[in-house]
């Protein structure tokens, strides 16, 4: 029992459970993926021998570049739209709704769509946007268009629409959280100094919301970069992103190749986040 009194031993013991959990469920899987990414596979077997072939193929193929570019494009457009919508919603909740009970009520209202699964929310767009869907019928009956609009479904438009729908709340929550921490007297002080509402927004509120925006950005960017199911459903399998590349490899049992793509994707996402964090210090939010 004496050994437990030693403060070094006690410290290690206290840190041990989390260390074990992280080692088993984070470090080990990633290490496995990295290892497998250097293996080879044929149609019927996996060859556990070191080879750079997967990476050579990945960086040699023009498809990789195009798919990564498409993935970045989805991430960027989704980010821009969720930011614009998320900031507006959060601003309305934080600064225009005066009573706290209404703020909470409206905030919960925003989360209601999240009570159903992602897949269902995604699929429910299909009858709405389809060739003879509600949207097209409406546009025709209003006389806006003469024949059904084709690009509504199974296009980049529908993919990004679904992304925005799925992930805007991830932007709203952290931005709302930062906004609620802004001292209201700062807004008054800006007003006292002759700032208009717009100037207050640009020069005071927006800079102070940066940490929240950054946290939301990390959520949205990582979610979109890692997604494959939304792109598959909403593009009718006509568009590709890195996630789909990996999922295709897996369905063809090409695990080493999938692992290599996953490693490259992981590094890309980590690099993106590292660059984002250079701009804003989010530590004071945590």
């Amino acid at each position: 029992m004496q050994i437990l009194k030693n403060r070094h031993v006690a410290g290690w013991l206290q840190a041990a459970p989390l260390t074990l959990v992280l080692a088993a469920f984070l470090v080990l899987p990633i290490a496995t993926i990295v290892t497998v990414s250097f293996w080879q596979a044929t149609e019927f077997s996996i060859i556990p021998a070191f080879s750079l072939e997967n990476y050579r193929f990945l960086f040699g193929s023009s498809v990789t570049g195009r798919v990564f570019l498409a993935t970045f494009r989805y991430a960027f457009l989704t980010w821009a739209l969720t930011l614009a919508i998320g900031f507006t919603v959060a601003y309305y909740l934080a600064f225009h709704v005066r009573s706290q009970s209404w703020q909470i009520a409206l905030f919960l209202l925003c989360t209601i769509p999240f009570w159903t699964s992602n897949i269902i929310r995604m699929i429910s767009w299909i009858p709405f946007l389809g060739r003879n869907g509600i949207a097209n019928q409406m546009l025709i009956s209003w006389g806006v268009v003469d024949e059904p609009v084709e690009w509504l479904l199974y296009s980049d438009f529908s993919v990004i629409l679904a992304f925005v729908h799925l992930y805007t709340l991830f932007m709203v929550v952290p931005i709302f959280n930062t906004m609620m921490r802004i001292d209201r007297s700062l807004v008054e002080a800006a007003y006292d100094n002759g700032a208009s509402g717009w100037q207050t927004l640009i020069h005071v509120i927006l800079p102070l919301c940066k940490p929240g925006i950054m946290i939301g950005t990390i959520f949205v960017v990582t979610l979109v970069m890692g997604d494959f199911i939304t792109v598959r459903f909403m593009s009718g399998s006509q568009r590709a992103n890195v996630g789909r590349l990996i999922s295709n490899d897996i369905s063809l049992l090409q695990y080493p190749s999938a692992a290599a793509t996953a490693v490259v994707l992981l590094c890309t996402v980590l690099l993106t986040i590292a660059i984002l964090l250079r701009f804003v210090d989010i530590r004071k939010e945590l």
Partner: peptide, 17 residues
């Protein structure tokens, strides 16, 4: 508006940006 009155206010918590 506050800024057009010829007054300026110093806030209790200073309200520095």
């Amino acid at each position: 508006e506050p800024a057009r009155r010829g007054t300026a206010m110093m806030f209790q918590s200073y309200a520095l940006f």
